[in-house]
Simulated assay, not measured.
Amino acid sequence: MHIPPYHKKATWQRFLVGTFIGAVIAYCLFVYMHGTMYGQLLEENRDLKSEVSELKNQNEALLEDNESLDEQSKEPIKVETIEITITNEEDLPDKLIIHDLEELMKEEIEHIIGKDLSIISESDGLLEATIQNKVFKVDDFEFQFTVEKLYLTPTVKISVEANIAD
Rank of each mutant, 00 (worst) to 15 (best):
N88C: 13
K49Y: 06
V17N: 15
I164Q: 11
E43K: 08
S73I: 11
I113Y: 13
F143R: 06
K137A: 05
D116C: 03
G22Y: 01
E43W: 03
T36V: 08
K115G: 00
D166C: 02
N163P: 03
L96H: 07
I158G: 04
E60F: 08
G18I: 03
Q144I: 12
E80W: 00
E89S: 13
I120L: 07
G18T: 04
A10W: 00
F15L: 13
M33L: 15
K74Y: 04
S121W: 06
N66T: 09
S123N: 10
K134Q: 09
E71V: 12
D166N: 13
P76V: 12
Q144S: 15
C28V: 03
I120A: 01
D140E: 15
Y151N: 12
D91P: 14
L117C: 07
K8A: 03
N88Y: 03
I98K: 08
C28G: 07
D65R: 11
G22D: 05
A61S: 10
T81L: 05
I120D: 05
N66R: 11
A61V: 00
E54Y: 08
M105L: 09
L126I: 05
V156N: 08
T81I: 02
Q144F: 02
R14S: 13
T11K: 00
E54W: 09
C28I: 06
E67Y: 05
S53G: 06
D70R: 08
L150F: 00
K137Q: 10
T19A: 13
P76H: 06
I120V: 11
K106P: 01
K78F: 10
T85A: 06
K149D: 15
